[in-house]
Write a protein that binds this DNA or RNA. Structure first.
Length: 418
RNA sequence: CGGGCCGUAGUGUAAUGGUAGCACGAGUCCUUUGGGAGGAUUUAGUCCGAGUUCGAAUCUCGGCGGCCCGACCA
């Protein structure tokens, strides 16, 4: 991609109306634009990151044998009345159509997926079933906060599973848990699996929490064993770990990037979602639901991976793998050569399906290009200039030192990045 | 939803109640080019509404909006 084609949303200063780091840097570096509190536009660079995360999540969820669907964001009041959540779901966005009918904008989709699955679940032979979607969610939050960490409109992966018996639900729940661990691991995040309240309907739940200064949750965990609980359910004792009994309990702030629930029959019951077993007897379907906040993850990644100069994206979600800069001098003839060399490199890399952002802009100074490159945070930077002669300067965003290399050794460096 | 802080060109900032200024950006021209280049020139602003006052960006009230703390967050 030629950088001259990118609309330039990069700012010289941090926005004054944001305080959380992820909001400040993502706005400044031109990844997102704020439309209103808790609602952001994803600009070209930001959308690329969002889709990288989306695809990574999709891969792992597909590997569970789940089927992707896309449910509507708009849904009728009746479905929500059926479960009582028209009244009880505080953050439900409600609207009225010209037909005077009332609708909800989906904050989560149990009310939609249950009647949907009813059309495909009749017998024990139709189970288990797992459906998921990656879709924009709406929640009328009392307070949007911390940039992408809590928005009124956000991207979420929501998976719903359907089972004939508890054992099957339990084993699928564990499989999802492992898939989640893989997802966060691939994103370079240390996510702690934490016991949490099941909320109004469910007794059991686990959250996946990433330690962050400005995370919303407080986590009690043991530095000695695997004990970890959300502070909201932690019961005070004499200071030792309830699991391993060592005095190694710690507390930390974290942001919830995923959660998994065993819903049991809480949603199949109001919709009478049943299947016939081998004896022809009708039973309620057991359900689980599993969410990952995709856009929140993008905010968390910005919070975790940066330095004073800007973002440092992990390679597998970076908007591009390589940032190729052509730095020009005063000599026009020389500049033409530099541009030509850079263009050759760009062509070779793109022919190898390597994603390259090519800063070939003539009207930007070398300094500005370098500063912007650091802000954007693409993992590898290549520079062609008068200084590099017939070599190419290679630098990893996360490292201090650059080195001059030939194209072939640069190619092997890029390949080893993966 | 309670509390606090705050709203000035696109961005970031200044202006005792007394001429709304500066920098960056953007447009044009020239010179520049390895860490946000320089000159010339143009462009663009006091969130909205009322009040106090000879005079309001500044004081008062109301609204709207943003951030933060808390409550809330199946």
């Amino acid at each position: 991609m030629y950088q001259s084609r990118l609309p330039n949303f990069i700012k010289k200063e941090f926005p004054k109306d944001e305080e959380s780091y992820n909001a400040k840097i993502l706005v400044r570096a031109g990844f997102v634009d704020k439309l209103m509190a808790g609602v952001y536009t994803y600009l070209p660079l930001g959308l690329r990151v969002l889709e990288k995360i989306t695809n990574l999540v999709r891969e792992e969820i597909n590997a569970l044998g789940a089927q992707e669907i896309r449910m509507p964001a708009l849904s009728p009041k009746e479905n929500w009345q059926r479960t009582g959540r028209w009244e009880s779901f505080d953050a439900l966005f409600k609207l009225i159509g010209r037909d005077k009918k009332e609708y909800a904008l989906g904050p989560t989709h149990e009310e939609i997926v249950v009647p949907l699955s009813q059309k495909a679940i009749f017998s024990y032979k139709d189970l288990p079933l797992a459906l998921y979607q990656i879709q924009t969610k709406f929640r009328d939050e009392a307070r949007a906060k911390a940039g992408l960490l809590r928005g009124k409109e956000f991207l979420m992966k929501d998976l719903y599973s359907f089972h004939a018996d508890q054992k099957d639900l339990d084993s699928f729940y564990e499989k999802v848990s492992f898939a989640y661990k893989r997802i966060f691991q691939r994103l370079g995040l240390k996510a702690l699996k934490v016991e949490a309240s099941g909320g109004t309907f469910s007794k059991y739940s686990h959250e996946f929490q990433v330690f962050l200064e400005n995370g919303e949750d407080e986590i009690v965990y043991c530095s000695h064993c695997s004990f970890a609980q959300n502070k909201e359910i932690f019961e005070e004792n004499k200071g030792y770990c309830p699991l391993c009994r060592s005095f190694s309990l710690k507390i930390g702030r974290a942001s919830e990037v995923g959660n998994i629930f065993k819903l049991g029959t809480n949603y199949s019951h109001p919709f009478s979602l049943k299947y016939k077993d081998k004896e022809g007897k009708e039973n309620l379907v057991l359900m689980g639901c599993y969410g990952i906040g995709i856009s929140r993850l993008m905010g968390v990644l910005a919070e975790v991976f940066h330095d004073q100069d800007g973002l440092i994206w992990p390679a597998n979600v970076a908007p591009f793998k390589v940032h190729l800069l052509a730095l020009f001098g005063s000599n026009k003839k020389e500049n033409r050569k530099i541009l030509e060399r850079a263009r050759q490199i760009y062509k070779k890399l793109t022919a190898l399906k390597i994603e390259v952002l090519f800063d070939e802009r003539l009207d930007k100074s070398a300094g500005e290009k370098l500063v912007e490159s650091d802000l954007i945070g693409i993992p590898l930077r290549l520079v062609v200039s008068q200084k590099t002669k017939d070599k190419i300067e290679f630098k990893e965003r996360k490292k201090k030192k650059a080195q001059l290399l030939g194209l072939s050794s640069i190619l092997s460096k890029i390949n080893s990045l993966k």
